[in-house]
Design a protein around this nucleic acid. Structure first.
Lengths: 104, 104
DNA sequence: TTAGCATATTAGATTTATCTAATATGCTAA
DNA sequence: TTAGCATATTAGATAAATCTAATATGCTAA
């Protein structure tokens, strides 16, 4: 199996390396949403949110379609959800470990 | 199930958001290695590599133990490998899609 | 048309990550 | 001990990501 460029791989992680973008993915996990419905769920300005959406789109994590004057975003793949779940598992392990070391 | 801070989650992605760190994880996938065996496989200076290893360690992705004057690193969890595999899957899909759009 | 809403884009300031080079630490063997 | 190897740490320079504020675009309805 051919090996893939680590630069490309790290770009995917980079796209997910921001709390706002994680939040966006989590929102879209329940189904597609227009920007106007995403915005009130974030602590981020409109223009900033638009930039974060562009980052996710550039990495093929989300896609968008127009509906009148609105733009509707959705997850483009299932993998990204699995990646977030795995990240959570890593964190939980760290927390358990910290807890255990405090009890020693 | 309680939801976890997006900041914590994004920190895990941040730790993997660099080609050198991806390379390190891939090397460790085959088993533990001392720094002296990691170094020649990277395009990175010794001090820089040491910093990258510290980033991975801080996020609970790798762990280390001393063996004489050497330090041996290993993966601390399985999840990180799965995350990289998923990232590759996302990229492959993107590539296929680009290919398809060129043929249209 | 034109006004207004929805979203995107841009430029510049600020923050954060990365790299380099130098130095420090800690072990081992002579 | 002391010299040398293996690794880590630090400071500062450079590069990249992020945010803010302003403006642009494109659709819709009056």
């Amino acid at each position: 199996m051919a090996t893939m460029g680590n630069q490309l791989i790290s770009n995917v992680f980079k796209a997910l390396a921001h709390p706002t973008r994680i939040q966006i993915v989590k929102l879209l996990r329940n189904g597609e949403l227009c920007v106007c419905d995403i915005l009130p769920n974030l602590d981020s300005e409109q223009s900033n949110t638009s930039q974060h959406l562009a980052v996710l789109k550039n990495q093929g994590i989300v896609e968008s379609r127009k509906d009148g004057s609105k733009v509707i975003y959705s997850l483009k793949n299932e993998e990204v959800c699995a990646m977030i779940d795995l990240a959570e598992a890593i964190i939980l392990r760290q927390i358990e470990e910290t807890k255990a070391s405090l009890l020693k």
